[in-house]
Nucleic acid binder design. Structure first.
Lengths: 341, 341
DNA sequence: AAATCTGTTGCACGCGCGTGCAAACAGCGT
DNA sequence: ACGCTGTTTGCACGCGCGTGCAACAGATTT
């Protein structure tokens, strides 16, 4: 192929063919030079790379993906951007995925009904897998996704799921919440209140039910609880205000066990600034996730840390495996005691 | 083309050809049915769509992009995930981009030296544009990006840049900081302290310099300032502690003007919990960005809100324009006064 | 020196769709 | 029924690269 393009600058559409003629090899050798474990002599590779460098050649992953039917692309579906932990997860996932050569398509799932469109979006790009780190994915949605799927794997990250067609990479909620319950009990608290997230979430069920049943098993009474419609500190504020707002001191709980930090943070703010109570002297608070704010001198939140890095590394392992086994896995995190409880 | 594939389930690789034979039309008509403003009769389109539905066909955007040289994909480069405002920006951008049919590749730029690799990543996917919302992009990096670029547009979002090859969509920092300075002065504060972010950032320069010079123009003295190495509340805590930690009350500033909310939040926490001072009675604080936390009863931060939605809509407009004009644009936000100042 | 082996290089074909144009078609008035 | 106009449909070719195999050269053995 001759240089049928006028331009020679970096804007020109340099293809492997151009590099091939420049380096005096075949096009296939050029592409081999860019492939990791390809069979090519070091000398040729250097020659090719040099030519590529001067021409400004960069392999086209669209074409590669089209030809190989492997995109090395995953879609990350997120819907609750109000939860600060999402920022942590996105950072960790994108970093580790990229380290292993995977690119990430970020899809903002507007609402429940939009999930189908989001999945369609992902399909059109022929992603190799879809990773869900949102909350609005009930089993109905997942079933639809499974039916129409054009991607090999559907992974629920940081949340357990019973769905058999789905891969769940999460922390062991039962073990974690049991540890929290025992910690709360050991610290002498006796009137806990559980602040839960939206009920569509299975993690919700595990955590809340685990705590309640664990407590009941010990003391025979089931603690109070309330439900926040989303993992949003602002909404948590509203719910806590409503539930505890005009309650006499004598009927106040002595510890607020929150399903995660997003709720706990909202709760802390309300308890201090609207109820005028001290933490932990009047009411203690626990969270879940160990978001960065927990370390702040303002919150000092007792919480539970998920091994996100380890989980992300395992995720990559799952992505790169071609087996057809059951990839579900529950990790164990660690309780992080701080001054809030 | 006959159905040379055994499977008929959704896993099968259904192509436009398959739909074509099923609907009794040509392949091109099938693709036309999926194209927005294509010339096709409603009847045929329905017929095609129905066949596509039952076969589970979804157009392949890789192939479309390859053939048309337009990917409808942008890369979003982010590096400072510690800044909560990034979460807001990511939510807004992905939402509005998707509304207009653009997909987003999220690239986590690990550090300064990694930016080149990140841009290479984007090039390989042949994104139509790269959007930077990080901080570690100095002019040197940008120049390199320009040189080796395989994307049409390089957009700096929510940050001004002098680089002529770059499109900057941001708030007018000078106007904004002038407004803040005037507000602070009007509220009677007289001993301001400016808390700035890393010096690589041009927004930094605008905001800090604007505030300092505006103040000097009025009172003849240049306020104190300190610099935090990243937009991270935790690091802001450290710097504020170091700078104000053991300073007698008489020498304390009466207002801490922060370059953005990430710094302001860290500052508020330290002032209350380590210095034991009240806000705003002892020290007032102002921020920039109006992140969700600002509304919390704990912060009630006086800040400045950028018109993110409007900016994102303009971004789309820029993406879809084929002109070669100067797209730089500065927006005007609004001051949001709260109890912190 | 011939035979063998290992590492390296070249190539036909296909991945699924867009572009631009030509052919076919329907609708209208005379 | 005829031509005319505007709409709808079909098609050749190319986008850039991967797969699997055949051909080849140099190094090693017999």
């Amino acid at each position: 192929m001759t240089q049928h393009r006028g331009k020679t600058g970096p804007d020109a559409n340099v293809t492997a063919d151009d590099v091939a003629t420049a380096a005096g090899v075949s096009r296939w050798t050029v592409n081999r030079a860019f492939k990791k474990d390809a069979s090519i002599s070091p000398r040729t590779r250097d020659k090719v790379m040099e030519a590529a460098q001067t021409l400004g050649y960069v392999p086209d992953l669209r074409a590669a993906s089209l030809a190989s039917d492997r995109s090395n692309l995953v879609a990350l579906l997120v819907d609750d951007f109000a939860n600060p932990h999402k920022l942590v997860m996105m950072e960790r996932l994108t970093r580790i995925l990229r380290k292993h050569g995977w690119d990430t398509l970020l899809v903002n799932t507007l609402d429940r009904d939009d999930t189908g469109h989001a999945l369609l979006n992902a399909s059109q790009r022929r992603v190799d897998a879809v990773i869900l780190i949102g909350i609005q994915f009930d089993d109905e949605t997942l079933a639809a996704a499974q039916h129409a799927r054009r991607f090999r794997k559907l992974i629920i990250f940081a949340r357990t799921s019973q769905n058999p067609d789905t891969i769940s990479i999460a922390v062991d909620d039962v073990a974690a919440m049991t540890e929290i319950a025992d910690y709360v009990r050991a610290r002498g608290y006796r009137r806990p209140f559980f602040l839960a997230g939206p009920r569509t979430v299975s993690a919700h069920l595990s955590r809340k039910e685990t705590f309640l049943s664990r407590w009941k098993a010990h003391f025979g009474t089931e603690p109070e609880s309330a439900e926040v419609p989303a993992y949003d500190p602002i909404l948590a504020e509203a719910v806590v205000t409503e539930v505890l707002g005009n309650r006499p001191r004598s009927e106040m709980p002595d510890v607020l066990v929150c399903e995660n930090d997003a709720l706990a943070i909202g709760a802390v703010d309300v308890i201090r600034h609207k109820l005028g109570l001290r933490i932990p002297e009047d009411i203690a608070v626990t969270g879940f996730d160990d978001v960065p704010q927990c370390r702040s001198p303002n919150y000092r939140l007792t919480t539970y840390r998920q091994p996100l890095t380890e989980m992300a590394e395992y995720l990559v392992e799952v992505l790169e495996s071609s087996e057809e086994r059951d990839f579900d896995r529950a990790f164990t995190g660690c309780l992080v005691p701080r001054e809030s409880a």
